[in-house]
Computed example of a mutant assay.
Amino acid sequence: MTTTGKQPVLHLPAREVPIPTLLSPEAQAQLAQSPGISNPPWPAQDDIDGWRALIATMDETGLAGLTMMAQQVPATVEEINTDGVRVYVVTPDGCTVGDQSVYLDIHGGALLWGGGESCRALAVITAGMVGAEVWAVDYRMPPDHPYPAGVDDCVTVYRSLLRDRPAEKIVIGGSSAGGNLAAATILKARDQGLPLPAAAVLMTPELDLTESGDSFNTLMGLDTGLTTRLMPANLLYAGGHDLTDPYVSPLFGDFTTGFPPTFLVSGTRDLFLSNTVTMHRALRSADIDADLHVFDAATHIGFIGTPESEDRTRELRRFVDRHWDR
């Protein structure tokens, strides 16, 4: 143990980290693959063209995989404009006529990418997971629309949904950056006097843009799905606002005045593990019902098409069905 400045530092020797043998063969094979594609170099904060090029690259990189998975879900998709915000409404085959249950889905993508066709494809995948109608918010993003544009768009869509659906039939959820905006949307809607939704779903959520949690250091390099910190993107998104503002980093919110039952998911190799478990403790300290699921060896992107991913989907479906009272 040594001290660097005011912060103690623990030095560990280099070591190999085996893949757990209790994982399914499919999950083991995914972990054995090389790390995912790292982000290109971050542009300077004022390099708007550089940010636009990076965002286009990341959207192109992810869209093919999302489209392939979405093609496995029989569903109809309608694009609508809700009070100025583009929304993809997805209805999976087999939905019960008259069921008012709806999942308000907020896409991930480092708070910068994942909109448009990626948002649409992810909405179809989500509809297949929850077995209900999905409203996916194609919210505005930097560099042209930094905070609070994205949160405001999500609150606008939630307010619109409330005109036709009871709050107890609405679940708000998202993964990664979408988990940030899902939680921020609930906090801001609550503070504006809107009723709480039936539940929240936060999948490996980016809740702390200060990146102060332990796993940002201990799991860097071990998470092959998220291979870098996102601080440059966080600063661009915040647009000069304090990163500890609860609507920017919901982990710093006040949950004692109300928050819905929450489903949280992470993995032991997920760079955002600290975000997830610290949020769970914050909710439980405020006596909020919160289900925490941490999957062994799962990275930020989890496992795709494996028994572990099927287990996660089964738990998610149980949770939303219970809170929709279906």
Rank of each mutant, 00 (worst) to 15 (best):
R229C: 07
F252V: 07
D254F: 02
G239V: 09
A238F: 06
V248N: 00
F259M: 03
D245Y: 06
G240S: 11
P246Y: 02
H241D: 02
L251M: 13
P250C: 02
M231V: 13
N234H: 15
H241W: 02
D245S: 12
G267D: 13
G253N: 07
T256C: 00
L251R: 12
G253R: 05
R229N: 12
F252D: 07
S266F: 04
A233N: 14
S266C: 06
G258F: 04
R269V: 07
F259V: 05
S249L: 05
P261S: 06
L264W: 05
G267S: 11
A233S: 15
S249T: 05
V265I: 11
T262H: 07
P246K: 05
F263D: 08
V265W: 10
G258D: 04
P261H: 08
F255D: 01
D245T: 05
L243V: 08
L236R: 14
G258H: 03
V248F: 02
D270A: 04
V248W: 00
L230M: 15
R269W: 11
L230V: 13
G258E: 04
G267R: 13
T262R: 07
T268M: 12
D270Q: 11
L243K: 06
P246H: 03
R269Y: 14
G267H: 12
M231R: 15
A233M: 15
S266Q: 07
F255G: 00
L230T: 14
Y247Q: 02
